[in-house]
């Protein structure tokens, strides 16, 4: 039984309901959510958990040595390591604008810059 019972905390609002999810064969039973948003959250977390991933990547000739980046949409949790391996490898040339696409189309998202980096003068 315990294998099929998962406990989650809903993060949609500050109430933070403890939600229990029971998986019996292909059926999912969700208990403890005070509102439908929590039920949706739990279903999403169990079936296809997603996260926004953020990191920094190296910058050539910038006024800062790295630029911060994030995925523009949440990506599947299982792809996080793939994104992190990528951000460790690449290097971009300054100047960089906020919102500039650093890597296109990886794990269903674009990696975009979240900080401006000026050219080193």
């Amino acid at each position: 039984m315990s294998n099929n019972e998962i406990e989650l905390i809903c993060i949609i609002c500050p109430i933070g309901c403890s939600i229990k999810v029971y998986k019996v064969l292909d059926n999912i039973k969700i208990e403890g959510a005070l509102c439908p948003r929590g039920v949706n959250y739990a279903r999403q977390e169990i079936l296809d958990p997603k996260r926004i991933v953020m990191s920094v990547v190296k910058v050539k000739n910038g006024d800062l040595p790295v630029v911060s980046v994030k995925t523009d949409v949440p990506i599947p949790k299982k792809c996080i390591n793939e994104i992190m391996r990528l951000t460790a490898l690449i290097e971009v040339e300054a100047p960089i604008k906020i919102g500039q696409v650093i890597v296109k189309d990886v794990c269903g998202a674009n990696l975009i810059a979240t900080r401006e980096v000026k050219k080193n003068s």
């Binding site: 989650l8 905390i9 993060i11 500050p14 933070g16 996260r51 949790k77």
Partner: peptide, 12 residues
């Protein structure tokens, strides 16, 4: 800290 940080920063 906030719940969302407990969940997404520690539990994850």
């Amino acid at each position: 800290g906030l719940i969302r940080n407990i969940v997404q920063c520690l539990r994850d």
